[in-house]
Design a binder for these strands. Structure first.
Length: 653
DNA sequence: AGCACGCCGACT
DNA sequence: GTCGGCGTGCTC
């Protein structure tokens, strides 16, 4: 056999290195196949990690070719489909493929890998056939034939909880999880895999329990970021085994190495947690859309509330609208009590009724005792003397402390009147809990927030005060749900404020038992109407129509262009001449880190049509490339940074 | 990123 | 004559 050559993607953030490099496979080096990890020399004898993408008998590069330095591992961790996905996703986001791979492929764990290789080594004994699927009758009724027909749907799930039987006993979970598990089962029945992406471990737990009941525990692979590294890597390697399994995990699971993908589902696609916080900041929904286009699998974009993004795809005809279940609760908008407290009278009545037999959920906006403090004498807002952040109180009688930097405000003196006493502004979870405890003597009160995580509560009557997104699942569902602080939530300026409020309310409403009362306090208007109605789709439609009018996302795509004035100007010039493109700015922005005089930083926002995406991404990527190769001061930020579909500039609109 | 290559000012 | 400034380009 003649010489072999490998094309390698190197693990580097530099846009200049975002392409394949060709290396010779040195004679005698076994195991160099597509997908394996290698170490290769790049520029002299400096070594870089990389993945083999292709192997060929002939060289394509005319220049000098170096040898692969070493095979790091023979496990093909980068499957061809995932490489194609990473490349396409990076191109769409004007970023580097290696950055996507860093999210897609977990770090190697040598011990785990060794065990996996040994378990595979005995080719003589083929792996036992996967265990039969458990008999679960009612799941066949959930959108039958969806996977086989390769349908693409936007799914609005009505709420409700249900009990499932697992190895550890009975567990109560959201009905949505059973629906998704039933759809995953369709893929598994065909010998295919399913990837189910969830925002965080709370939803992942429910989905895991649903899958244990619907497809069996042996067929579930978890890719949880909270797992320890070895455990995570073990799950990742199980995906490569190519067995029909359901793969569940956070946003990075959308890149799982599944070769025979029957179904790709994204749950709660409106949740901001599904946006990757690393370059190139790809949202799992967008990655899922790209992957579906490449693999042709069935696609489910689902949530308790329809996102404007999903609704856009429905109106475009790319997704079909579907709905599961029916709203079996009563939502009552209620005015705030006029005694200055936040809990409306109707909420007290609903809670009193429900507490005879069931727990009651109270959703609040902020954790702690008092989210704010003010001077008892002049009313001035209490601010941190060190950083200017707002002062708050974690619990009753606790020392006032800065909510931003955590510094204790001991010996605080009002800067305007020299007063020394601070009084609380607003009510956090623990203060609401105290007040409700007094109002319902003898009823236990529990708090669930970021600091006190609580995933479940049993069916006994009690009051559960939870911050948004931290609500426990109650056995049998809550007898009443009270949604507080909606007025403060909607008072924020921001493009997605109302949409996000509806999403969070709908998620809490979904935890109610059948026939329960949901009280929405102090909110009127379209967002309230979205929750009292049977479906959130009209609300999403109206929101989307308004954004179309204003040319705001997701009606358009955006690129935020940040950098030195000359680099920004050059980038904007390169983009000129598109019909459906407009530019906001540039404006001067606070130059971040070690700014020096003359280091002016500007920002412009470019809005463009989805159809122009490839062209715009290509142009801005080329501008980043030229800007990167120009000299700059050591330690200074890049001359030009471009981020596509950055929600941040619109947060304040 | 880092590092070599390359073409203009003040030095032994 | 040469040493060295850092603008420009490249990494298989």
């Amino acid at each position: 056999m003649g010489e072999r050559f490998a094309r390698v993607v190197v693990d580097s953030r530099l846009p200049q290195l975002d392409r394949l490099f060709e290396y010779r496979v040195p004679p005698g080096l076994e195991g160099v196949e597509p997908g394996v990890r290698v170490r290769v020399p790049l520029r002299g004898d400096r070594m870089t990690a990389g993945y083999v993408v292709e192997v060929a008998d002939a060289r394509a590069w005319e220049g000098e070719v170096a040898d692969i330095e070493k095979l790091v591992s023979p496990v093909p961790v980068l499957r061809p489909e995932v490489w194609a996905l990473a490349r396409a996703v990076a191109d769409r986001a004007a970023g580097g493929a290696a950055d996507v791979l860093r999210v897609a492929i977990p770090g190697r764990q040598a011990r785990v890998e060794k065990a996996w290789l040994e378990s595979r080594a005995g080719d003589a004994a083929p792996p036992p056939p996967p265990p039969p699927l458990p008999e679960v009758l009612e799941t066949a009724a959930v959108l039958p034939g969806l996977v086989e027909a390769r349908r693409r749907i936007a799914l609005e799930c009505a709420g409700g909880v249900a009990a499932v039987e697992t190895a550890e006993g009975t567990a109560w979970i959201g009905r949505w999880a059973i629906a998704l598990a039933a759809l995953a089962r369709q893929a598994l029945e065909r010998g295919e895999q399913a990837i189910l992406v969830v925002p965080d471990h709370r939803e992942q737990r429910q989905l895991r329990l649903a899958l244990e009941a619907v497809v069996g525990v042996e067929r579930v692979v978890e890719l949880d970021a909270r797992q320890k590294n070895p455990e995570r890597y073990r799950g990742f390697l199980r995906c490569i085994d190519d067995e029909p399994v359901a793969i569940i995990g956070p946003r990075s699971a959308v890149y799982a190495p599944a070769a025979r993908l029957g179904l790709l589902a994204v749950w709660e696609d409106g949740d901001p947690l599904l946006a990757e916080p690393l370059s190139p900041w790809v949202h799992a929904r967008d990655a899922a859309l790209v992957r579906q286009g490449q693999s042709g699998c069935a696609l489910v974009i689902a949530g308790h509330a329809r996102s404007t993004d999903a609704e856009r795809l429905v109106e475009l005809g790319h997704l079909e609208h579907e709905r599961l279940g029916a709203q079996r609760v009563r939502v009552l908008p209620a005015a705030l009590a006029d005694d200055g407290r936040r809990v409306p009278a109707s909420a007290f009545a609903a809670a009193r009724d429900a507490l005879t037999s069931r727990p009651v959920l109270v959703q609040v906006g902020r954790p702690g005792h008092a989210p704010g403090l003010r001077c008892a004498d002049c009313g001035a807002r209490g601010r941190c003397t060190a950083c200017g952040g707002p002062l708050g109180q974690r619990s009753r009688g606790a020392a006032p402390a800065c909510r931003l930097c955590g510094r204790l405000a001991a010996g605080w003196r009002c800067p305007s009147c020299d007063g020394q006493r601070l009084v609380p502004v607003g009510r956090g979870s623990s203060r609401i809990a105290e007040e409700l405890g007094r109002a319902f003597p003898g009823v236990p009160v529990v708090v669930a927030d970021g600091a006190h995580e609580r995933l479940t509560v049993d069916a006994r009557p009690r009051i559960v005060v939870a911050t948004r997104g931290a609500e426990p699942v109650a056995d049998g569902g809550y007898g009443a749900v009270v949604l507080l602080d909606g007025d403060a939530l909607l008072a924020h300026e921001g493009l997605r404020v109302a949409e996000e409020a509806v999403r969070q309310w709908a998620a809490a409403r979904a935890l109610a038992a059948e026939g329960a009362t949901v009280v929405l306090a102090g909110v009127v208007g379209p967002a309230a109407a979205a929750l009292t109605g049977d479906t959130t789709v009209p609300f999403a439609k109206a929101e989307l129509a308004e954004r179309r009018q204003l040319r705001f996302p997701p009606a358009v795509r955006t690129a935020s262009v940040v950098g030195t004035p000359d680099a920004v100007a050059e980038a904007l010039e390169a983009l000129e001449g598109s019909e459906h493109l407009d530019v906001l700015g540039p404006v001067a922005v606070a130059s971040d880190d070690r700014a020096r005089p003359g280091d002016e930083v500007q920002r412009a926002i470019v809005r463009f049509a989805y159809g122009d995406g490839p062209r715009v991404a290509g142009i801005v990527r080329a501008r980043v490339l030229t800007a990167a190769s120009r000299p700059r001061r050591p330690g200074a930020p890049a001359r030009l940074r471009i981020r596509l579909d950055d929600p941040e500039p619109f947060d304040g609109l």
